[in-house]
Design a binder for these strands. Structure first.
Lengths: 181, 181
DNA sequence: GTGAACATGTAAGTGGTTACATGATTTG
DNA sequence: CAAATCATGTAACCACTTACATGTTCAC
C-alpha cells in the first residue's frame, strides 16, 4: 500500500498531471518506487474519490486534456500518518541471487554474460546518482529537507556501490572456477 | 516468474514435501526469495501438471498426507535455461526510502523510532548470516558449489552491513536536525 | 479421545504488468 | 492533412496476501 503515498509525496513536492507524474516516476521518485502510467492514473482516480487530492480548477476534465492535481489537507494528514506508522520490511526477492543459487546446482553455463551486463547497468546507475549528488548537493550545509533528500540519495549510491563491488567479486570468482574457459 | 524456479532449485537440492519446502523458504532460500505455503502448494500443482516435477511414489496422495516431490529431467532443463537467460533487474521498490522522502515534506515526527527498529532487525539478520558463514564455510578452499553458495551468502552479509551503516548514519543525521528533542 | 501440531489445500481480494484504445496538440 | 507526440484512460491477466477449511498423527 505505498503507491498512493508515493503519489501524495510527489504531488506535495509539486502539483502535476498524470503524465508529469509518470515522468517523475521514471527518474527521481522512481529510483526507489517505480510505477507505470496505468497504475498512476488508476491511483489518481482513487485518491480523488477518497478526497485526498483534487483536480486543479480551470482545467476541463476530458480525455486527451491535461488534468493536474494537488494534495488536500486530508491527503497531507494521511501521508504524515503513513510516514510515522510502524512498518515491517517486506521479505526480500532478488532474482539474481536466486539464479546464482540455482547455478550452484545446474551449472554456471551462460550466466556470466548476464552478470557482466548487470554490472554495467549498476555502474551506469551509480554514475547517474553521483551526477545528481554533485549537481544538487553542495559541500555546504543544506536545509533539513535537503539533508533528508541527500540521505535518500546516499542510500542509492551506497546500494549501487555494493552491487558493483559484489558483481566484480562474483566475476573474479567465476574466473577461478574449475571448468572455466 | 521466479517462484517455480526457486522451488525447482530447492527440490534439486533435496526432494521435499510442501511443508518442508515452506520451512526452507523461511530460512535459506527464503533469505532472497520468500514464499508462503499457499504459494508453494499452488506452484507445486502447476509444476507437476507441467511435467517438471513428480510426486515421489509410495506416498498416498490425500489431504493431510505428506506428499514429496522430486525434479524430473524436464524440470532441470527448464531451470538451467532460466538460470542462463538474460533477465533485466526489476525496478526498485523500497518503502523505507520512500517514507524518508515523504518525511522531507510532511516532517519527521514518529519515523525515528521505526528507523531504530529497522536497524535492530538488520543487525539481527546480519548476525544470523555471520553465524551461518562461520558454521558452513571454513577458511579452506571449498567445492565450486560451496563457493557459489558462499558468494550468495556474502551478498546477504554485505547488504545487511550496508543497511546497518546507512541506518546508523541516518539516525545520526536526525540527531543534528533542527527541531530535534 | 481430546488437543496440539502436522500437512495440504481453497477463496477472495489487492497490486502490478501488459496490451490495447482514444482523443488532443504540434510539426512538417 | 498526415504523422508524431502528448495525454488520459480500459481491460485482462498474473503474482502475492490474507483468511479460512479440512484431514491426519501424535502425546497426554
Amino acid at each position: 500500500m505505498s503507491l498512493p503515498h508515493a503519489i501524495l509525496t510527489a504531488l506535495l513536492e509539486k502539483p502535476s498531471s498524470g503524465l508529469e507524474l509518470t515522468r517523475r516516476f521514471d527518474r527521481s521518485i522512481g529510483y526507489f518506487w517505480s510505477a507505470t502510467h496505468q497504475q498512476i492514473y488508476r491511483e489518481l482516480g482513487r485518491l480523488e474519490s477518497d478526497g485526498l487530492i483534487r483536480a486543479l480548477p480551470s482545467e476541463q476534465p476530458a480525455r486527451g486534456q491535461k488534468k493536474s492535481y494537488e494534495v488536500l489537507p486530508a491527503g497531507r494528514a494521511e501521508l504524515a500518518r503513513w510516514t510515522a506508522a510502524r512498518q515491517d520490511p517486506k521479505p526480500a526477492r532478488d532474482a539474481l541471487l536466486l539464479r546464482l543459487r540455482a547455478a550452484a546446482v545446474v551449472g554456471t553455463d551462460g550466466i556470466e554474460a548476464d552478470l557482466r551486463r548487470h554490472l554495467d547497468l549498476h555502474q551506469r546507475q551509480l554514475a547517474e546518482y553521483r551526477e545528481i549528488e554533485e549537481r544538487d548537493f553542495g559541500p555546504d550545509r543544506d536545509s533539513a529537507q535537503d539533508r533528508l533528500r541527500h540521505l535518500v540519495l546516499r542510500a542509492g549510491i551506497d546500494l549501487e556501490t555494493f552491487w558493483t563491488q559484489w558483481l566484480t567479486h562474483a566475476l573474479d570468482e567465476f574466473g577461478e572456477l574449475p571448468g572455466h574457459e
